[in-house]
Nucleic acid binder design. Structure first.
Lengths: 193, 193
DNA sequence: CCTAACCTGTACTCTGATGTTCATCATCTC
DNA sequence: GAGATGATGAACATCAGAGTACAGGTTAGG
């Protein structure tokens, strides 16, 4: 009586959320039927556990956010802003590769304000580090912070797409992301590396 | 008898293609009904001029490619690679702003090989300049050229999105794109600006 | 001014996706 | 092993978008 559901039910819910995560990371418009198939479960079973497609997406996104927050929260953001940024980028790259287009699915399926809140929450992980780096001259401050944050996400997303299309190897992508972002945040004429 | 169609028919075709361009640039999944409405024309009239949605998208994309080729072909790519890159970026930014997500619609609606051909054709505008700049030390060559090309597109796309979301002003976007890309292509430790 | 070309809305089919119902079958748990 | 819980596929309703048919109205253009 300690468990709320039968064991096989819980296992299926896990399978469905895992399948939904990988499917949505690849194609944000994937159908419920496809997710159920990948999960090795009937479509009706899926609806027995999740109210609707939107509800499933929301739960998957929330779990991904929780996991991401854990990973990013464990990172040391002190010390030299550039090496701290490298650590943050490396972890973010892992997450981007894992969750890919999930953010797009979230934007389409979740209520706008809820998505906005989640999105801003993730950005707050970057902002203080970026601001500190701009103050102490590690990063250029001749561009809006907003733009630099957008750029960060964009580079991560570009790397994910490039790996998917086979343009670059997954093993080298992390280094490329770091090398590119570090250069982009360097002030023109600076001698920093 | 010199004209193949009646004047009002030609005018409608123009309206439809213009409407389709702006609609698809904003949302690659826009419906035919929406396009017809924006064009100020009945949905059936649209089907009178275009076989299918895919055919319309293809024609719109082909026109956009033709226009882009004209604009980019007129640019002087000689002289200092960095200033040449600035010219190319400025023009490409204008086109990106104008055509936005049209490339996504193309990818979804056009036969894969045809899209690939178009895409590679556009990349060929950048390749020689980039290769020359890498050879003469203007640009870093410690990253794959493929990655740098992907990055270029990504930054342009990111700027388009940022303007759309109101994060940055359209008037400053061009400068941000140039400043960012130039920095990203600078070798770490270099003193170039 | 007349006719062919063109435009229009309405209504239809078709397809693919979401979501629900139900009857039956499997399996967990006690 | 018995009963509750869960899984399953088939069938159904619904909806939105693509594409078609038609019947009648409009206009370009000779």
């Amino acid at each position: 009586m300690t468990t709320l559901k039968r064991a096989d039910a819980r296992k299926n819910i896990e399978s469905i959320m895992d399948a939904a995560t990988t499917c949505l990371a690849r194609d944000p418009d994937v159908s419920v039927a496809e997710i159920a198939k990948v999960a090795g479960v009937g479509r009706v079973t899926l609806y027995g556990h999740f109210e609707s497609r939107a509800a499933l997406v929301t739960q998957v996104v929330e779990r991904a956010i929780r996991h991401s927050d854990e990973q990013l929260g464990a990172i040391d953001l002190d010390g030299d802003p550039r090496t701290a940024l490298s650590r943050l980028l490396e972890a973010s790259w892992q997450l981007t590769q894992q969750y890919g287009a999930l953010i797009v699915a979230a934007e389409q399926s979740m209520p706008h304000e809820q998505f906005q809140a989640v999105h801003l929450g993730l950005l707050d992980r970057w902002k203080p580090l970026m601001e500190r780096g701009r103050r102490d001259g590690s990063f250029r401050d001749d561009q809006p912070l907003e733009w630099q944050l957008t750029l960060l996400q964009s580079v991560l997303h570009a790397a994910s797409g490039a790996v998917y299309r086979g343009e670059i190897k997954a093993s080298e992508a992390g280094g490329l992301v770091d090398g590119t972002v570090q250069a982009a945040l360097t002030a023109p004429g600076s001698t920093r590396g």
